[in-house]
């Protein structure tokens, strides 16, 4: 395990773009954890200074101030916590639901597995964000509901992937052999199939993080995310619109943050795919 990790890290370091992606994500995590230390006005998520509203970027306010006179830079750092929390929990839940569903549906060939796959196909038949909007709208704006809406609509992606990979893994000789030797279904799934498909799941999950962050930002932008005065990035951009074009910094900074973070996950995901999954190697890295 340690060997594998070390191998992975070495490979990643040698792929410049993947390394850049990893760097951006590390930075995001550091920023989120150390937000109170790194921010110049740590109280500004909750404290407002109306006389200082809409100030342009300066030495005191790196990215200016917002409509409440709060420091945009500091709020950005705290917003990173929300982004990470949403992405990690939502993706985690989707993976935890999607993998067992995909495994079971892929391993057994009966009506249960057909039903499971048909249900995930229905979810996949609509753009994911459309369903997420519907769910988030019903549940009401909050960070928990965003997570719920995202997990409820994301799990089928993993179910589909794991299903397809399981079906093909079952054709591998050694899996066939262990079934023939009488290994129990769970033993086969967990000891043989799961390790076999972990590469594609890891790759899909990494790229899925980027997608989730984008979707979460859309929900925030539509007012379905955590309510004001949350420093969530999507909401901040929505708030900034009525102060354009004068307060350009207000809209620009959070969008740039989303852009960087999503790009980080995408680059890392592409890099991981090259390393872990040579079959689907991008022949060039468009």
């Amino acid at each position: 395990m340690l060997e594998t990790t070390r191998f992975l890290l070495r490979k990643l370091a040698s792929d410049r773009t993947a390394a850049l992606g990893a760097l951006i994500i590390t930075l995001l995590v550091v920023v989120a954890i150390a937000a109170p230390v790194l921010s110049t006005h740590p109280g500004d998520v909750t404290e407002f200074h109306p006389p200082e509203r809409l100030l342009p970027p300066s030495g005191d306010h790196f990215f200016g101030t917002d409509r409440m006179g709060a420091d945009v830079y500091s709020r950005l750092l705290f917003g990173a916590r929300i982004t990470i929390a949403i992405a990690v929990i939502a993706i985690g839940a989707s993976v935890l639901v999607g993998i067992p569903v995909g495994l079971v549906a892929g391993y057994y060939r009966n009506w249960v597995s057909d039903a499971l796959m048909r249900i995930s196909d229905i979810f996949l038949a609509v753009p994911q964000i459309v369903l997420a909007i519907a769910i988030a709208q019903t549940l009401g704006p909050s960070i928990e509901n965003v997570i719920l809406a995202l997990s409820a609509t994301y799990w089928p992606f993993w179910a589909r992937l794991v299903y397809a990979e399981t079906r093909s893994a079952l054709n591998d000789t050694y899996v066939e052999a262990s079934i023939a030797l009488g290994a129990s279904p769970w033993r086969v799934m967990i000891l043989h199939v799961l390790p076999n498909i972990s590469s594609s799941v890891i790759v899909r999950t990494t790229i899925g993080m980027g997608g989730t962050i984008l979707t979460a930002a859309v929900l925030g932008f539509l007012g379905l995310g955590p309510p004001a005065p949350s420093p969530e990035w999507g909401r901040t951009i929505a708030e900034s619109r009525e102060f354009l074009p004068e307060a350009w910094w207000y809209a620009t900074a959070p969008g740039l943050a989303i852009f960087l973070v999503v790009m980080g996950f995408n680059l890392l995901g592409d890099g991981l795919r090259d390393i872990l999954d040579p079959r689907t190697r991008r022949s060039g890295d468009g």
Binding site: G210, L214, A217, V218, F221, G234, I237, S240, R241, L244, P245, W248, A251, T252, P254, G255, I258, F259, L260, V262, M263, N266, L267, D285, G286
Partner: peptide, 26 residues
């Protein structure tokens, strides 16, 4: 072109829309 594609896949559409509005319309 690779920089272009990487950006296109990472950008939030609503933010890009606002940037375009800010520059070309406003």
């Amino acid at each position: 072109l690779r920089v272009f594609t990487v950006s296109g896949l990472a950008i939030a559409a609503f933010w890009f829309a606002i940037l375009l509005q800010l520059l070309f319309a406003m």
